[in-house]
C-alpha cells in the first residue's frame, strides 16, 4: 500500500497512533499468554521432528491417562457443585436469613482471605486436620471411637481432595453470589407472594432464573479453578493420586510418560476440558439470560 494512499484519508493516519498505545500490552499478552498456549496446542499435533500427527492425542487414550482425566473432572465437578451449594447456602443465610447484620462484613473479608489461601499451605492445614494424626481424625478416634480410615475416608483420595478444595471454592462462590443476592429486589418477592406464590414457587420461578447466569459463571470458574490446581494436590498427596495436573507436572519434570510430545497432548487435553466447560457455560448462559440487555 502506498503512503500517498494512506495520507489521503486523515483518520486512517491517526488510527495507527491510537493502536500504538496498547502495543506493550498486546506484546506481553501475545508472548506470555497466547503464544505459550498456542505452542502447546500445536505441539500436541506434532511429531518431535515437526510434522503433523494424531498419535499424541491417540496416546492419551490409555486406561491410566483416561482414569487421571476422569478423576480430575470428577473432583472438579464435585468441588464446584458442592462449593456452589455451600457458598449459596451461607450467602443466602446472611442476606435473607435474618442473621445479625454484623456477620456480613467479616464473612466477606474472610471469604476474600480464604479464597486466596490455596496451594501448599492449604494442604498442610488439611493434613493437620483430617490427616492420619489430624486434630479431627484424632478427636473422632479417641473421643467417639470413629475411625475415619475404617469408614473409607482418606485425605489422599477423591473425597479428601474435594473437601480440601472446598476451602477456596466456597469463599469464591460467596464473594460472587452475595452481590447477586443483594440484587434481588424485595418487590419481586412481594409481588410474587401477593400474586399467591409460595416461597418455593418464588425461588423456582423468579429468583433462581434471575440468579442462574451468575451461578453458571461461578460454576465454570470453580471448575477451572479446581481442574488446574496443582500445588494443593501435590502437597497433599505427593504423587500418590494420579490426577491430570500431577501427571503433567511429573511429565514436565522428567518425562515419565517416555514421550515428550505426549506432554503437549496432556496439556492440550486440559485446555480442551476447561474450554468445553466454558463453552457449556456460555451456551447455558445465552439460553438463561435472553431477558438481559
Amino acid at each position: 500500500m502506498s503512503s500517498a494512499h494512506i495520507s489521503a484519508r486523515s483518520p486512517a493516519r491517526r488510527l495507527p497512533l491510537h493502536w500504538l498505545g496498547i502495543l506493550p500490552f498486546a506484546a506481553f499478552v501475545a508472548l506470555f499468554l497466547i503464544l505459550p498456549t498456542v505452542k502447546i496446542v500445536v505441539g500436541a499435533f506434532q511429531t518431535p521432528d515437526g510434522s503433523f500427527t494424531l498419535d499424541n492425542i491417540r496416546g492419551l487414550f490409555t486406561p491410566s491417562i483416561l482414569a487421571a482425566y476422569w478423576i480430575s473432572i470428577k473432583i472438579s465437578i464435585a468441588s464446584a457443585l458442592l462449593g456452589c451449594l455451600a457458598g449459596f447456602a451461607i450467602s443466602a443465610a446472611v442476606v435473607f436469613g435474618g442473621l445479625p447484620k454484623g456477620i456480613r462484613g467479616p464473612l466477606l473479608t474472610f471469604s476474600g482471605v480464604a479464597s486466596n489461601f490455596a496451594g501448599v499451605p492449604l494442604a498442610f492445614a488439611f493434613l493437620a486436620t483430617l490427616g492420619p494424626v489430624g486434630i479431627v481424625s484424632v478427636f473422632l478416634r479417641s473421643e467417639l471411637g470413629i475411625d475415619l480410615r475404617v469408614l473409607g475416608f482418606n485425605i489422599l483420595s477423591f473425597w479428601g481432595l474435594t473437601v480440601t478444595y472446598l476451602f477456596f471454592q466456597i469463599p469464591l462462590m460467596i464473594l460472587i453470589i452475595t452481590p447477586a443476592l443483594d440484587g434481588l429486589k424485595r418487590e419481586w418477592r412481594e409481588a410474587a407472594s401477593i400474586l399467591g406464590a409460595t416461597g418455593f414457587q418464588y425461588w423456582r420461578m423468579v429468583a433462581f432464573p434471575i440468579l442462574l447466569p451468575s451461578i453458571l459463571g461461578t460454576l465454570a470458574l470453580l471448575f477451572a479453578n479446581a481442574f488446574g490446581a496443582v500445588a494443593t494436590a501435590i502437597a497433599l498427596t505427593g504423587s500418590s493420586l494420579s490426577i491430570v495436573p500431577i501427571l503433567l507436572f511429573a511429565q514436565i519434570r522428567g518425562d515419565v510418560l517416555g514421550n515428550p510430545h505426549l506432554g503437549y497432548a496432556l496439556a492440550f487435553g486440559m485446555i480442551v476440558v476447561t474450554g468445553v466447560a466454558n463453552a457449556i457455560y456460555i451456551w447455558l448462559r445465552a439460553r438463561s439470560e435472553r431477558w438481559l440487555k
Binding site: 451461607i90 443466602a92 488439611f126
Partner: peptide
C-alpha cells in the same frame, strides 16, 4: 427460617475454623 440460616452459618464456621485450628494446634 432462622434455624436453617444459623445452620448454614454454623456449618461454614466449623468447616473454615477447624483446618485453621488444626494447623495452629
Amino acid at each position: 427460617k432462622k434455624i436453617w440460616a444459623w445452620g448454614a452459618l454454623l456449618f461454614g464456621i466449623l468447616y473454615f475454623t477447624l483446618p485453621l485450628v488444626g494447623m495452629t494446634n
